[in-house]
Amino acid sequence: MQRILSLLGLVAALIATSAVASAVQAQEPGAAIRAIPDYRLGSGDKIRVITFGEEALTGEFVVGGSGNVSMPLIGDVAAEGLTVPEFQTAVEESLKQGYLREPRVSVEVLNYRPFYIMGEVQNPGEYPYTNGLSVLNAVATAGGFTYRANSRRVYIKRADSSLEREYPLTPLTPVAPGDTIRITERFF
Score class of each variant (00 low, 15 high):
26 A>V: 00
9 G>P: 08
129 Y>S: 10
29 P>G: 10
31 A>T: 12
104 R>Q: 14
168 P>S: 09
188 F>N: 10
66 S>Y: 02
29 P>W: 00
147 Y>N: 14
24 V>D: 03
110 L>R: 10
109 V>M: 01
61 F>W: 09
101 R>L: 14
44 G>Q: 04
72 P>T: 07
113 R>K: 08
93 E>H: 10
161 S>P: 09
176 A>K: 03
110 L>C: 07
50 I>G: 05
37 P>A: 04
72 P>Y: 01
122 Q>W: 01
110 L>D: 12
165 R>E: 14
15 I>F: 01
56 A>G: 13
143 G>R: 01
30 G>N: 11
33 I>K: 02
9 G>W: 03
104 R>F: 07
27 Q>A: 11
161 S>L: 07
91 V>Y: 03
138 A>P: 11
127 Y>M: 12
94 S>H: 06
50 I>K: 10
169 L>T: 08
128 P>E: 05
100 L>T: 09
127 Y>K: 12
35 A>W: 01
27 Q>E: 13
87 F>N: 10
24 V>M: 03
65 G>M: 07
154 V>P: 07
79 A>K: 01
80 E>L: 10
125 G>W: 00
160 D>V: 06
61 F>Y: 15
19 A>L: 06
23 A>Y: 01
36 I>P: 06
33 I>L: 13
70 S>M: 05
183 I>R: 05
112 Y>G: 09
65 G>Q: 13
12 A>N: 10
102 E>G: 08
100 L>D: 07
181 I>H: 03
30 G>Y: 00
14 L>N: 05
53 G>K: 08
129 Y>D: 11
110 L>S: 09
112 Y>E: 06
80 E>Y: 02
110 L>T: 06
117 I>R: 03
9 G>S: 14
106 S>Q: 12
126 E>D: 09
86 E>Q: 15
38 D>R: 02
58 T>V: 10
149 A>Y: 02
145 F>E: 11
68 N>T: 11
66 S>T: 15
85 P>F: 03
69 V>E: 05
32 A>P: 06
11 V>E: 04
149 A>S: 10
158 R>C: 07
63 V>N: 09
56 A>W: 00
126 E>W: 00
158 R>F: 07
29 P>D: 07
121 V>T: 07
66 S>E: 13
177 P>H: 00
67 G>D: 03
17 T>L: 10
11 V>P: 06
4 I>T: 14
82 L>T: 09
58 T>H: 07
